[in-house]
Each structure stands twice: as C-alpha cells, then as structure tokens.
C-alpha cells in the first residue's frame, strides 16, 4: 500500500525536508523575505524517524540558487533541499554553511552604518562550538545567527 504523504506533493518546485521542529517558521519567514508571492505548503511537527518531530516546507515553482540554499542551511543544518520536477526528486542540494552571508538580513546593531546607506548588510560566518556566529562586515560586531534572523 502506498504511504500517504503528510503534506501534499507538489508538481514542480523545491521541498525543504528534515527541518528540526520549530525551525520551519524561521525558514518560512526567510523565504517570504526572498519572495512574498511564493506559494508554500507547510507542515509543522510531523513525525520523523530521524528527528522525532520535523517541519517540512514545499515551495511551488521556485528553484533555489546554491547561495540561497546555503543561507537556509544556517537555520537548519540537517535539512535537505530537494528539487522536484513532475512530482519526482530530480536533484538534491548539498547543504553547506556559507563563508559569507550577503543581503536579506539587517545588522542587529542599530548604530551600524549599513542601516542608512545604499548597501546590503554582509556577514562573515564562523562556527563557534554549537553556535554559528555572524560578524558584520561594517560594524565588526559578532552575533549569534538567531539574533541576526530576528528570532
């Protein structure tokens, strides 16, 4: 008997799976920042053999660039990004933490010059113990990734 999918399949697009439960909302917010018109099907707190509970996001008609995929991996290093065409997985993105994160996030330092000027915030990414730290290129202040993502 065919196993019933917990979140309806999509014909074409990207599935972000194996997101640790609770992280899905963060990624969703990030996706909406990338493109507010995206059609996204969401599943939160679904049973998962590997994780116990997981979140899943299915994004229709949108393929991610490697840069975007790397940015998403900051929030959920265990997640997988699968490219779907005609209901089949045709490609999987290898997840890796980027060295530099450019655009999309504002610097949490309210006195950072990047807020008032025609530039995008840019962070150098550094793993420290269990955390990922982001250091602003401009103000040189270092933050936990969750603070940068405004969570």
């Amino acid at each position: 008997m065919k196993k019933k999918l917990q979140v309806e399949a999509i014909c074409k697009g990207t599935v972000i799976d194996h997101i640790p439960a609770g992280q899905g909302a963060k990624i969703l917010r990030r996706l909406q920042l990338l493109d507010s018109e995206l059609r996204i099907t969401v599943g939160f707190n679904l049973p998962s053999e590997q994780l116990g509970l997981k979140d899943i996001l299915k994004v229709e008609n949108r393929l991610f660039t490697t840069k975007e995929a790397n940015e998403l991996s900051l929030f959920a290093p265990t997640a997988t990004i699968n490219v779907i065409e005609d209901y089949e997985v045709t490609r999987k993105f290898p997840m890796s933490t980027p060295d530099v994160l450019e655009g999309g996030f504002d610097c949490p330092n309210s006195n950072c010059i990047s807020h008032n000027e025609p530039v995008e915030a840019c962070f150098r990414v550094r793993k420290q113990d269990d955390d990922i730290r982001l250091k602003c290129k401009y103000c040189e202040k270092s933050f936990s990734k969750d603070i940068v993502a405004g969570i």
Binding site: N111, I113, S114, Y138, E140, K141
Partner: peptide, 28 residues
C-alpha cells in the same frame, strides 16, 4: 571620524582615495 560603527569601511567602498579611520562609533 564618524559616530556610527562601520562608517569608515563603508566609505572605503565608495572612495578611490585611501581612507584612514580616525574612529567609527564604538568599533575601531
């Protein structure tokens, strides 16, 4: 010298002449 952090780095990206930072906020 500028009261906001990162001002000198930003200026260096928009200026051909070398920038010498005389203090940017609480940063450097």
């Amino acid at each position: 010298r500028h009261p906001q952090e990162g001002a000198a780095r930003l200026a260096s990206e928009f200026t051909k002449s070398p920038i010498i930072n005389g203090g940017d906020g609480s940063n450097q």
